[in-house]
Amino acid sequence: MNIFRFSGDMTHLMSVLVLLLKIHTIKSCAGISLKTQELYALVFLARYLDIVTNFISLYNTIMKLIFLGSSFMIVWYIRRHRIVRRSYDKEHDTFRHLFLVLPCFILALLINERSAFKEIMWTFSLYLEAVAILPQLVLLQRTKNIDNLTGQYVFFLGAYRALYICNWIYRYFTEPHYVHWITWISGLVQTLLYADFFYYYFNSWKNNVKLQLPA
C-alpha cells in the first residue's frame, strides 16, 4: 500500500470521525444531509458484499467494518436519536434518493467489468459514491451559516478523493496491468464535484471569514 492510498483512507476516516464527533458531542446534525448519509450506507453495503468471502488483509476488513458501522450509526443518529434528530434540517434536505440510485444502478448493469452479481453491485457502489455527496453540497448551498465541523467534514471527504487519484496514478506506474477505467472515471467525477467547494473553502480560510457557498 502506498502513502497516497493510506493518507486517502485516513482522511476518509477523519471525515467520518469529525462527523460523529459533531453529532455525538454537540448532539446536533445541523447542516448534515441525511440523504447523503443514507446513500453512503448503501454504497458501503453494496461494495463490501465480499467482506466475509474475500479476505485481503486485517487492515482492509477493519476499515470496511468501520465504514459500514459508522455510516449506519450516523443514519441512526439523525433518524432516531431523541435530541440529534431535532436539529435535522428536513425542509432544505429535499434531494430524492431515487434520482441518483436508479441511474447508477442502470449504468452499473450496462457498464461493468464483469456481469457477475457482486461485480455489478461493486460497480453500482462506485457510481453511487461518485454522486452521493450531491445532496450534501446542495444543502450546504442552501445553508447560510456552515459551521466549522461540517465544513471540515466535506473538506476531508474531498481530500480523500484527491488522494485516491494520486494513489491510482502511482499504482499505474508501479504495478503491471493496473488499469481500471470504471473506478478512475467515477472517482474523477466524484473529485470534480468537490472543486467548487474547495475553491470557497480555501478562500474562506485564506481570508479568515466564515464559509458560505453562493446560491
Binding site: R5, N60, T183
Partner: peptide
Amino acid sequence: DLESEFHDEL
C-alpha cells in the same frame, strides 16, 4: 488474481 487486485481498495 483479477478479483483480489480489483477489490483491494476501500
